[in-house]
Design a protein around this nucleic acid. Structure first.
Lengths: 142, 142
DNA sequence: CACTTGACTTGGACAATGTCCAATGTAGGA
DNA sequence: TCCTACATTGGACATTGTCCAAGTCAAGTG
């Protein structure tokens, strides 16, 4: 059973076959799928599920705070179910794959008041970009 | 005369009216325009400039390292001519405006080897999101 | 269990952003 | 001035995302 599904059910979400399938596709660690990837995987379990429903469902999960939206490139947004453990992202410059990482330090504390321009900061995102060092060969995944 | 234009010229870039206009539109501090915004401003100076040329030109500037591409939301990429002074971004959660900020600390040093997964990190981006505190009123710009 | 109702799903049209290409134009060197 | 490689153009196309009216269904009620 999916942890994500459990959390959503616990919030009184009306359960449908479509929502269940989307939650199951997203369940797990280091999952960073685009909406269309989610749709493709959902279709293989529930052939009649529509694109619109996948977009709606992902949007609701984000609103509920159970899934994070990640915009690492200018392309499609990615959806990250690991919303309850703070983490940042490492993006592979070769293949675009994303891995959760856990830096030390506190980037929020690093921004002095004078550099906040009267804003209350609610969120800080750190994106590391890099390439695999020589020891990895081209088919490796991160 | 535009600093950006100077730098591009110094690299042996073939100069055309279109490229000059795009460089002039992008010149300055705290500039974070989308491609279509650049196009709109370019058209007002050179009515026949095409969208394709604006996209091509921005892409070349990014390749040359003279302009940074910023993807703060899942929408259009923004182009930042402030490529030669390290900085990060503060994004207004109300209006989407972007301001350059200069945090202390070193986010690269904050990522332990064990969290690099064999990658050589080439770049770190930090995005702060927040809302104006009460003292600002709704028409204010950052 | 059947009913009811408001919420959910659907397909397709549309919007926003970006890419590509063949034809045409032109900057800058010879 | 002429040549030619490079730049520009408009429009078709691709990708990603949003919206809507009509149909469907989950789940509470009796």
């Amino acid at each position: 059973m999916s942890d994500l599904l459990e959390r959503l059910r616990g919030r009184g979400w009306r359960m449908t076959a479509q929502r269940r399938v989307v939650a199951e596709v997203l369940d797990g660690d280091h999952v960073h799928l685009t909406a269309d990837e989610v749709h493709a995987r959902a279709v293989s379990r529930l052939p009649e599920i529509s694109r619109a429903t996948v977009y709606n469902t992902l949007g609701e999960m984000v609103t509920l705070g159970e899934v994070l939206e990640v915009a690492t490139d200018g392309r499609a947004k990615r959806y990250d179910p690991n919303a309850h453990r703070p983490h940042q992202h490492l993006v592979c410059g070769r293949c675009g794959a994303i891995r959760d990482v856990h830096p030390g330090g506190d980037p929020l504390a690093d921004l002095p008041d004078a550099e906040r321009f009267g804003f209350t900061i609610s969120n800080v995102e750190v994106t590391y970009r890099g390439r695999p060092s020589l020891l990895l060969s081209s088919g490796d995944r991160i």
